[in-house]
Design a binder for these strands. Structure first.
Lengths: 132, 132
DNA sequence: TATTGGGGTTCCAGCCACTGGAAGTTCAAG
DNA sequence: CTTGAACTTCCAGTGGCTGGAACCCCAATA
């Protein structure tokens, strides 16, 4: 199957698939006319990467996961270690974003947002005390 | 004051400060020896950018905020519009990350993580049904 | 049969927001 | 007088694509 079909079936843009081949993440056979030729196994791998990426794994981590995926004898502990590490990262990001949200939310809340120039958001960003 | 001092007082690495000057975000005076020379007002602006960046504003948004910051006559509504938009983005990011966390958390939870090769994480990523 | 249009191919450049490193000045301290 | 830190500029690289140019290939239509 051509790259367009593989793209539709995996959810990855053709450009991205070519890029992944470029960096040696996933290779494809070539048809006689030079077109890339994908098997359904290839599409499985592409979708695997697509899901892993959307779960927040970096491309390098995807490379690791992919080799664990194709290695029938790997220990599940190896996979769990990577995923657990990533889970921690996601948790830290959520905490950070939540703090951020609260801070900016406070600022927006206290800004009356009219034509006058007094603005607690600007004051907050510039470091002026908000008095609470 | 030299760039190192400004760096310490603003919380931005010297490289980043130079980069900001490069892209025309913040300029600095020059001393006779060619060193950048920062006033405390410059440091205020640097810290303003530092805070804005850490609150999730892009550099381009910082440029806008900075011009609102220095414009004594701007309407607070202008600032509020930018901040509110950004708040929505942060909320969307939190929702996305929370979904992600849940999904990966499930996978990790169900992986026994021992020496055997069966691994629900890999199965989940590859698209195999988890049966719930 | 010519041509149109929608695939595919390569390669090069750019995005964002830095960051690292090389090579050269300047300055303060010992 | 020398050492070492801090400063300068400039160039290149990061990650993960994405856009665009210029070309080839193939099926369908006038």
């Amino acid at each position: 199957m051509n790259i367009g079909t593989a793209s539709r079936q995996s959810g990855l843009p053709p450009k991205t698939i070519r890029y992944y081949e470029d960096i040696g993440l996933l290779t494809a056979d070539r048809a006689a006319n030079g077109y890339r030729d994908y098997s359904s196994e290839d599409v499985h791998r592409l979708r695997f990467v697509q899901r892993s990426r959307s779960l927040g794994f970096s491309v390098e981590e995807c490379r690791q996961l992919l080799s664990l995926y194709t290695d029938r004898d790997r220990a599940s502990a190896d996979v769990k270690a990577i995923a657990t590490e990533k889970l921690g990262e996601i948790d830290r990001k959520i905490v950070e974003l939540t703090g951020l949200r609260e801070m900016l939310g406070h600022l927006v809340e206290h800004c009356h947002g009219d034509g006058r120039p007094e603005c607690p958001i600007i004051d907050g960003l510039s470091g002026k005390s908000q008095g609470h």
